[in-house]
Design a protein around this nucleic acid. Structure first.
Lengths: 234, 234
DNA sequence: GCCTCGTTTTGCGCTAACGCAAACTACCTG
DNA sequence: CAGGTAGTTTGCGTTAGCGCAAAACGAGGC
């Protein structure tokens, strides 16, 4: 098993406040793996937890009826599959690589030992889980109070912020994402997303194509996102 | 400052795996307070965190436009106002006692010390925050895929489960809750909630009045909750 | 017992968004 | 290069639920 270069991950919030030796010890328990684009990453029960090193991962939750929602897109440096840290035996969501991805993998069984030995690990994880909880609440707030157009605007701005590639003529979302995906992030249908993006495209706000979106006028999209339900159109 | 009886709180998940001495030491840092019905419990910045001993607390989040959503109802034994544990300087939500309530209060400043001294505290908190995160995701899933009637059914069943008082003719939700509150939990309007509850009432599923709801036929409400969008009506 | 205020109910019109269906397009495969 | 597949666009009819407004109700205060 190839050893992971600590310098690549030392700066991550997960490892904040840890000595190089501690980090080294933690990394020794991990193995790394590569997942090709569009491959599923998890089985039903939570035997591992992951740290994404490279690529992009989509975490989604499925209804009994088979409909899906996107819980989040994981970007490099983030952890996922933390079911066991919160005491769940099975993953609440499924993960799938949307791009060729590289991850570090720890067996779930290592977690209790690691936490006991390095309490900062629990504290750091608490921070990130807490942040995600707040983001969830924000999302619930948006779904409760905003129209679809505003929600899509917010979703795209968030994606651009966390995975945006700066171009000279805008910001491109740096992984393949379909209308359907955006619909599943905002609680609507791919049809509605398509209509709205088409509208934006004809106004020059975005440029988009097959699984590809470029924000040409991020500033104007911010305005759209913040426009309250009753502020008049056009 | 009156000392808190450890036996009242020793069994709480927050203190799982702690010695009586540790518990005692933690409780020594807390003070208790009583909040009358309908009083606000927090200022803007997160100077304290709370453990609810008695009563019921409503945690709500407000939009820039002044609309509110209910994040959750806190039941006795649960913590709230944990902003600092996740590194936030200000509360993301506001708390208000919906019943006469009694809480334990710790100063935010005590948290880092407590966590360092009792690592189990962080681990336990991680568990509860993680559980809440999952509940949030479930709520997002419901808002994305279910109709209002199903969402209301789920919300009431959840309330009944966590704060239901068993009567011989059903389950009563054990604190004052208005149509507006339910609307803010399910992402709809008080009008729609009222209409749906009226409908249920005329079918004998519930009995309700001013800030008061009794589930008369919990079983049938479960059926309603699980009915998928397309399953035909009556 | 009467008054007042907050909550709930209900009617009515409207529209944002869905759902279905069909056409179109880009990409990948053989 | 032809064919197939997955993603996207668009039209059209429908409707769940909103928004407004007014009335009815009920609880607590004076």
């Amino acid at each position: 098993m190839a050893k992971v270069d600590t310098s690549l991950v030392a700066h991550l919030p997960l490892f904040a406040g840890m000595t190089p030796e501690a980090l080294d010890e933690i990394l020794r328990e991990a193995r790394s793996a590569r997942y090709p684009k569009n491959s599923a990453m998890q089985g039903a029960d939570a035997q591992c937890f992951f740290l994404l090193l490279h690529g992009h991962v989509r975490a989604a939750k499925t209804t009994p009826a088979g409909e899906q929602i996107v819980v989040r897109y994981v970007t490099p440096g983030e952890t996922f599959g933390l079911a066991m840290a919160i005491g769940a035996a099975r993953y609440p969501a499924t993960a799938m690589a949307v791009d060729d991805s590289v991850v570090l993998i720890w067996p779930t069984s290592a977690w209790p030992r690691l936490v006991e030995r390095f309490p900062a690990l629990a504290a750091n994880t608490l921070q990130t889980v807490g942040t995600r909880l707040q983001e969830s609440h924000t999302r619930i707030l948006e779904m409760s109070t905003q129209q679809v157009e505003q929600r899509i605007a917010h979703a795209l701005l968030r994606l651009a912020k966390q995975s945006g590639k700066k171009l000279d003529h805008g910001i491109e979302i740096d992984f393949p994402i379909s209308r359907q995906d955006i619909a599943q992030m905002t609680g609507t249908t791919l049809h509605t997303v398509s209509r709205i993006l088409s509208g934006w495209e004809s106004q020059g706000l975005v440029e988009s194509g097959r699984q590809r979106i470029i924000l040409r006028e991020p500033h104007k999209i911010v305005v759209l996102a913040e426009r309250s339900a009753d502020s008049g159109a056009a």
